[in-house]
Protein backbone atom coordinates (compact mmCIF):
# COMPACT_ATOMS: atom_id res chain seq x y z
CA UNK A 1 0.00 0.00 0.00
CA UNK A 2 2.65 2.48 1.01
CA UNK A 3 4.58 1.55 -2.08
CA UNK A 4 1.50 2.21 -4.23
CA UNK A 5 1.02 5.66 -2.71
CA UNK A 6 4.68 6.43 -3.29
CA UNK A 7 4.38 5.39 -6.91
CA UNK A 8 1.27 7.48 -7.42
CA UNK A 9 2.83 10.54 -5.80
CA UNK A 10 5.91 10.19 -7.92
CA UNK A 11 3.85 9.88 -11.06
CA UNK A 12 1.77 12.92 -10.16
CA UNK A 13 4.85 14.95 -9.37
CA UNK A 14 6.35 13.93 -12.68
CA UNK A 15 3.16 15.01 -14.42
CA UNK A 16 3.06 18.41 -12.70
CA UNK A 17 4.76 20.41 -15.42
CA UNK A 18 2.05 19.32 -17.86
CA UNK A 19 -0.78 20.05 -15.41
CA UNK A 20 0.59 23.39 -14.34
CA UNK A 21 1.16 24.59 -17.90
CA UNK A 22 1.51 28.34 -18.02
CA UNK A 23 -1.01 28.56 -20.88
CA UNK A 24 1.28 30.08 -23.46
CA UNK A 25 0.15 27.94 -26.38
CA UNK A 26 -0.96 30.50 -29.01
CA UNK A 27 -3.79 28.28 -30.24
CA UNK A 28 -5.19 27.98 -26.73
CA UNK A 29 -4.89 31.71 -26.18
CA UNK A 30 -6.78 32.31 -29.42
CA UNK A 31 -9.46 29.83 -28.35
CA UNK A 32 -9.75 31.62 -25.03
CA UNK A 33 -9.98 35.01 -26.74
CA UNK A 34 -12.70 33.85 -29.08
CA UNK A 35 -14.46 32.28 -26.09
CA UNK A 36 -14.24 35.57 -24.22
CA UNK A 37 -15.80 37.41 -27.16
CA UNK A 38 -18.50 34.76 -27.39
CA UNK A 39 -19.21 35.08 -23.67
CA UNK A 40 -19.68 38.83 -24.18
CA UNK A 41 -22.02 38.05 -27.11
CA UNK A 42 -24.02 35.69 -24.89
CA UNK A 43 -24.77 38.55 -22.50
CA UNK A 44 -25.71 40.79 -25.42
CA UNK A 45 -28.09 38.23 -26.90
CA UNK A 46 -31.00 38.64 -24.41
CA UNK A 47 -30.57 42.44 -24.48
CA UNK A 48 -30.58 42.47 -28.28
CA UNK A 49 -33.67 40.27 -28.44
CA UNK A 50 -35.52 42.70 -26.16
CA UNK A 51 -34.30 45.66 -28.22
CA UNK A 52 -35.54 44.01 -31.41
CA UNK A 53 -38.85 43.12 -29.81
CA UNK A 54 -38.36 39.41 -30.50
CA UNK A 55 -38.38 38.77 -26.72
CA UNK A 56 -40.58 40.61 -24.18
CA UNK A 57 -38.79 43.28 -22.15
CA UNK A 58 -37.82 41.95 -18.72
CA UNK A 59 -36.22 44.57 -16.47
CA UNK A 60 -34.60 42.05 -14.12
CA UNK A 61 -33.15 39.90 -16.90
CA UNK A 62 -31.87 42.98 -18.73
CA UNK A 63 -30.15 44.25 -15.59
CA UNK A 64 -28.61 40.84 -14.95
CA UNK A 65 -27.21 40.61 -18.48
CA UNK A 66 -25.87 44.15 -18.22
CA UNK A 67 -24.14 43.31 -14.91
CA UNK A 68 -22.51 40.27 -16.48
CA UNK A 69 -21.34 42.40 -19.37
CA UNK A 70 -19.87 44.97 -16.97
CA UNK A 71 -18.13 42.25 -14.95
CA UNK A 72 -16.69 40.58 -18.05
CA UNK A 73 -15.47 43.81 -19.60
CA UNK A 74 -13.83 44.78 -16.30
CA UNK A 75 -11.46 41.82 -16.06
CA UNK A 76 -7.80 42.17 -16.96
CA UNK A 77 -7.76 40.38 -20.30
CA UNK A 78 -4.12 41.11 -21.10
CA UNK A 79 -3.27 37.38 -21.09
CA UNK A 80 -5.48 37.07 -24.20
CA UNK A 81 -3.49 39.62 -26.21
CA UNK A 82 0.01 38.27 -26.63
CA UNK A 83 2.41 38.28 -29.60
CA UNK A 84 2.07 35.21 -31.77
CA UNK A 85 -1.73 35.18 -31.63
CA UNK A 86 -2.39 37.87 -34.22
CA UNK A 87 -3.72 37.64 -37.79
CA UNK A 88 -0.98 36.68 -40.19
CA UNK A 89 0.47 34.30 -37.59
CA UNK A 90 -2.66 32.31 -36.78
CA UNK A 91 -5.05 31.80 -39.70
CA UNK A 92 -8.15 31.88 -37.48
CA UNK A 93 -7.17 35.19 -35.91
CA UNK A 94 -8.58 38.48 -37.17
CA UNK A 95 -6.77 40.58 -34.56
CA UNK A 96 -4.48 43.06 -36.30
CA UNK A 97 -0.94 43.19 -34.84
CA UNK A 98 -1.63 46.71 -33.56
CA UNK A 99 -4.13 45.52 -30.91
CA UNK A 100 -1.38 43.37 -29.43
CA UNK A 101 1.24 46.14 -29.65
CA UNK A 102 -0.81 49.15 -28.50
CA UNK A 103 -1.32 48.05 -24.92
CA UNK A 104 -2.23 51.51 -23.65
CA UNK A 105 -4.91 52.07 -26.30
CA UNK A 106 -6.23 48.54 -25.77
CA UNK A 107 -6.63 49.23 -22.06
CA UNK A 108 -8.37 52.47 -22.96
CA UNK A 109 -10.76 50.67 -25.34
CA UNK A 110 -11.66 48.14 -22.66
CA UNK A 111 -12.17 50.98 -20.19
CA UNK A 112 -14.58 52.53 -22.71
CA UNK A 113 -16.44 49.23 -22.98
CA UNK A 114 -16.58 48.95 -19.18
CA UNK A 115 -17.88 52.52 -18.98
CA UNK A 116 -20.61 51.81 -21.53
CA UNK A 117 -21.55 48.55 -19.77
CA UNK A 118 -21.71 50.32 -16.39
CA UNK A 119 -23.96 52.96 -17.94
CA UNK A 120 -26.13 50.16 -19.32
CA UNK A 121 -26.43 48.59 -15.85
CA UNK A 122 -27.92 51.82 -14.51
CA UNK A 123 -30.57 52.14 -17.26
CA UNK A 124 -31.29 48.54 -18.32
CA UNK A 125 -34.05 48.13 -15.71
CA UNK A 126 -35.80 51.43 -16.44
CA UNK A 127 -37.64 50.67 -19.66
CA UNK A 128 -36.96 49.23 -23.10
CA UNK A 129 -36.12 52.59 -24.72
CA UNK A 130 -33.54 53.43 -22.04
CA UNK A 131 -32.06 49.94 -22.37
CA UNK A 132 -31.82 50.34 -26.16
CA UNK A 133 -29.97 53.62 -25.81
CA UNK A 134 -27.55 52.01 -23.35
CA UNK A 135 -27.05 49.05 -25.64
CA UNK A 136 -26.23 51.49 -28.46
CA UNK A 137 -23.40 52.84 -26.31
CA UNK A 138 -22.01 49.35 -25.78
CA UNK A 139 -22.26 48.70 -29.53
CA UNK A 140 -20.34 51.90 -30.25
CA UNK A 141 -17.54 50.76 -27.92
CA UNK A 142 -17.38 47.33 -29.59
CA UNK A 143 -17.50 48.84 -33.07
CA UNK A 144 -14.93 51.52 -32.27
CA UNK A 145 -12.32 48.92 -31.40
CA UNK A 146 -13.29 46.51 -34.19
CA UNK A 147 -13.08 49.31 -36.74
CA UNK A 148 -9.51 50.04 -35.71
CA UNK A 149 -8.10 46.65 -34.88
CA UNK A 150 -9.94 43.90 -36.68
CA UNK A 151 -8.85 42.64 -40.07
CA UNK A 152 -11.56 43.35 -42.70
CA UNK A 153 -13.50 40.26 -43.83
Amino acid sequence: MRKAIFALTTTLLAAMPALAQDMTNPDEILTARHGYMLLLAMQLAPLGAMAKGTAPYDAAAATEAAKNLAALSGIDSSMLWVPGTEAGVLTDSSALPAIIANTADRADRFAQLKGAADALVTVAGNDVEAMKAGLGGVGAACGGCHKEYRKPD
Binding site: L40, L44, G48, G139, C142, G143, K147, R150, P152
Partner: peptide, 9 residues
Amino acid sequence: FDSAGGHMA
Protein backbone atom coordinates in the same frame (compact mmCIF):
# COMPACT_ATOMS: atom_id res chain seq x y z
CA PHE B 1 -23.76 39.76 -31.58
CA ASP B 2 -20.61 40.29 -33.44
CA SER B 3 -20.22 43.93 -34.36
CA ALA B 4 -19.66 46.02 -37.46
CA GLY B 5 -16.04 46.67 -38.35
CA GLY B 6 -14.21 48.69 -40.99
CA HIS B 7 -15.94 51.60 -42.70
CA MET B 8 -19.34 50.09 -41.80
CA ALA B 9 -18.65 50.90 -38.14
